[in-house]
Design a protein around this nucleic acid. Structure first.
Lengths: 356, 356
DNA sequence: TTTCAATTTGAGACCGGTATCAATTAAAAA
DNA sequence: TTTTTAATTGATACCGGTCTCAAATTGAAA
């Protein structure tokens, strides 16, 4: 009540300068920590600043320096444990390096992603970390780099975009688990992903815009083909974008006469839903159905049976992306890095031989 | 290679104005969407802007308007499913209302939180959503509100700070489950929280700085006392700040001669660890030990047995906090709201009568 | 004491927008 | 056609910092 409500009480360098009896330029030097000032003046300004409770305006500072000390991050969905863990890696590194993070969810929607990038560029972030919804649709990313702000791709790369990229070795992981399943006698192996296509059906890997997932499916199909399993394309299911969708798809799949004997879930959210449906339908894992899930979510070790998973170094994915970005921001002008982090299959007890 | 690398190619209103043959002020009116302009001029400016690929500089805009279109969020740990889900609620509302979100992790550390607030204020966020690490230590929050920027407290309140607050009905939930456990004959009931104290031991609820947790413990102790169980303070365990810590604490607890017959886990991360330790020690849930966990994490329904939990409306917690903030930002000058969202106990199968 | 270089300070432009206010033009009323 | 009023437009200050450059001060060398 005793202060003007709207008219901000913010003290500026000019105020401090006046109080300290020096010029604005000199006060700014002390407050901004640049240039050279005598000890006597520095003290006077410091004292005045404290008395006036001076708080610098980063916006104004960014205005002239051109650096905002901010990095923009666009992920599919922060609620997904995969992204929230990667985000933790990013924020840890960012904070250490003195940057703050603006987070935008794209909801895996390309248009939302475009809007997000535009917003972030308008806010003059120093750099970007993006997990692109569609690899095929990257003009907005190209434009971002053209504006001179470094970009790092997270979990999903792009052949046509020559920027720093950090991905997991998805293809290799998919090949590995497919090989194991086939060795156990499985031939009706379903692959289930949240990625969707125009007609909600899968035809060829080229339909899949999410790079990490496409590489997995390619690996899956490749090993199948090598093992003499043809036409496995029809076992790839897309569009498990929510638990509800997943539930419907899995139920239909498991109720069909030719039901799969093994399912590969493309992330832990899907894996969880497969698990639930099995419970509902009274199917036993692994006797009736083998299950492998991508992402070593914390709960996967505690179910009955515990779930065999592909462990991805998710935290390190985020951490590495942020490190690359910070290096660029510090003037690293070398060629684009494409870093592939190794995955690892954690064998637990959700995989067994195919039922007769 | 064909463009100047460092000197930004950013087009400004002045550039557009020149190209369109109008004054800077007029071009700004069109580009900024304010004031009144003739159709002819508007078109000319629009065309020029497109030709020059004009991208507005939000920083400069914020500079004069005083609004940055940004809200700052400080949470304990984005990796925790509780916060990542709440965060989803916040970002959804924020985006809808045209705000972007700057996220900072405090790691539940009061000093880090202070630094975070300072950073956010310096960046001139329009408002703040904070999940304070310590309720007792809130001078920095008070100062934030004094700077005229609205603050909303998330999941944790403060009696001495008169600001919008959104919390869950934690005390009631704790009372409810304690009552149930006692009715089933339990008297050795342990409460396990990540909150820590100076000497890593619990003496009185006043030791607990995290409001939501303190209220739960108060409820727990209150019902115990009413039921004639005295000295239950010694069954409250603090310091389960990492899975490792939790593992040690739970193992020690369950190996002691007077081991608890029931454990209340203060969040799903702790609940999961309790579950794992039981597996290791060969203890059966619920026959040897009953388990109740706060937070209805997605996996809790899929374990064997599924876990009885306190469901908190986590998404709505974040959503509501963001809505309150947006209202304030739109000039709502009414009194501070203190919203308490109801919790719900989801009975599953991890609770049974106390073993003999 | 004078000279010259190094250090410290101040004045004012600038970043890229917005906001104010006066000047100009167009439209409506007399 | 002349007045009056409303709609457009332009010139310029301003937001709160940083930065350049010249002026003033200081200290060391001559």
């Amino acid at each position: 009540m005793d202060q003007s409500p709207s008219r901000s009480s913010a003290t500026t360098v000019a105020d401090v300068a006046r109080k300290a009896g020096v010029s604005k330029a000199t006060a700014a030097r002390v407050l901004g920590g640049y240039g050279t000032v005598s000890d006597r003046v520095r003290d006077a300004v410091t004292v005045a600043a404290r008395a006036l409770n001076y708080q610098p305006n980063e916006l104004a500072r960014s205005m002239t320096t051109g650096r905002s000390g901010t990095i923009g991050v666009v992920v599919g969905d922060i609620e997904n444990p995969f992204f929230s863990l990667a985000m933790r890696g990013i924020t840890d590194v960012a904070r250490e390096a003195g940057f703050t993070v603006i987070l935008i969810n794209s909801g895996e929607d390309a248009d939302a992603e475009k809007a997000a990038i535009r917003t972030l560029l308008a806010k003059r972030v120093d750099g970007l970390i993006v997990s692109p919804a569609k690899e095929s649709d990257i003009d907005h990313l190209r434009e971002a780099t053209r504006s001179g702000r470094p970009l790092v791709l997270l979990d999903r790369g792009s052949e046509t975009l020559d920027v720093d990229t950090v991905i997991a070795d998805d293809r290799h992981a998919a090949e590995d688990i497919t090989r194991r399943l086939i060795a156990l006698g499985h031939s009706r192996i379903a692959y289930l992903t949240a990625c969707d296509t125009a007609d909600h059906r899968f035809h060829t890997p080229a339909d899949i815009n999410t790079g990490s997932v496409r590489r997995r499916i390619e690996g899956f199909l490749c090993i199948c083909r090598k093992a003499g399993l043809e036409g496995m394309e029809e076992w790839v299911h897309v569009g498990a974008i929510t638990p509800d969708h997943t539930h419907r798809i899995v139920t239909a799949m498991l109720k069909s006469p030719q039901r799969p004997t093994a399912i590969i879930a493309s992330d832990s959210v899907i894996g969880l839903e497969v698990f639930k449906v099995c419970r509902e339908l009274g199917l036993a894992i692994p006797d009736d159905l083998s299950l492998v899930s991508f992402h070593d979510a914390d709960w996967t070790s505690v179910t009955t049976p515990p779930v065999t998973v592909v462990r991805q170094p998710v935290y390190r994915l985020g951490e590495t992306a942020a490190k690359l970005l910070v290096e660029r921001l510090n003037g690293d002008g070398t060629e684009a890095n494409r870093i592939v982090l190794q995955t690892e299959v954690i064998e637990r007890a959700s995989v067994a031989g195919a039922p007769a």
